[in-house]
């Protein structure tokens, strides 16, 4: 097992580190990385081209289209440029919202648009971006049978607003995001680690955290063994 992972990681990380910078940012938040996007784009568009031989699935798939609905119109009217982007990709709608208004957007969706079920709250780490963290709330409305995603971008030391006052579910979900990414949630009633031990060091789902990395000190003190590997 260790052999396998060790053998695997090095070839993986280089191209994994390069690509995410440009690609998801180009699709989700073009405004956030204007200088990075153009020079990072060529390597991005290059890989799909060799894979062009199967052309039929290609044109059908990728491009996100603008998401236009009455609700988005209302939100845009209310928050203006706070709603940075609203798109639909593969039939799934999402919006990228500025951090300063994200709580109000979530509250608006909860109180006025009947999104009463918080399906999931999670995050993604893009180390090369100026705002490396993306926090994602997946919302569902029973009344409309509609599922949407709300995303916001965070800089390294920024905290996201906690959604616990809106949905009790957010409690454990945000604790898990904190546990795995180290993202803090302002206003969370009890922000502690949930899956890892409380005094564990490191945030495993960050991209700069290796898959074989462990808190050796914790392992030695608490398990009485030299190494967890």
């Amino acid at each position: 097992m260790p052999d396998e992972t060790k053998g695997n990681t090095p070839p993986v990380s280089p191209d994994k580190d390069q690509q995410p910078v440009a690609q998801p940012s180009s699709s989700t938040a073009p405004s956030s990385t204007p200088p990075g996007a153009p020079d990072a784009k060529p390597p991005v568009t290059a890989p799909p081209k060799p894979a062009a031989p199967p052309p039929p699935p290609k044109p059908a798939g990728p491009a996100p289209v603008p998401w236009e609905s009455e609700m988005v119109g209302r939100l845009k009217q209310r928050f203006g440029s706070g709603i940075r982007d609203a798109s639909t990709y593969l039939g799934q709608s999402y919006m990228v919202v500025d951090r300063s208004v994200v709580y109000d957007v979530l509250q608006g969706l909860h109180d006025e648009e009947e999104f009463n079920y918080l399906v999931d709250c999670t995050a993604t780490h893009y180390p090369q971006r100026p705002q490396p963290f993306e926090v994602i709330w997946i919302l569902y409305s029973f009344a409309r049978n509609e599922r949407i995603r709300v995303k916001t971008l965070l800089a390294e030391d920024e905290a996201a607003p906690s959604a616990v006052p809106l949905w009790s579910t957010a409690n454990w979900l945000e604790r898990e995001v904190y546990d795995m990414f180290g993202i803090r949630f302002d206003g969370h009633p009890d922000l502690r680690r949930i899956l890892l031990p409380e005094d564990w060091k490191g945030f495993p789902l960050r991209k700069d955290h290796s898959i074989i990395q462990q808190d050796q000190e914790w392992v030695q003190i608490n398990l009485g063994i030299e190494s967890g590997q």
Partner: peptide, 19 residues
């Protein structure tokens, strides 16, 4: 292709989703 997807099914225990 580059992008994100959330898909969920009704597992025996409830909504099981993959993002």
């Amino acid at each position: 292709p580059v992008g994100e997807i959330y898909h969920s099914i009704e597992a025996p225990k409830g909504e099981l989703g993959y993002f």
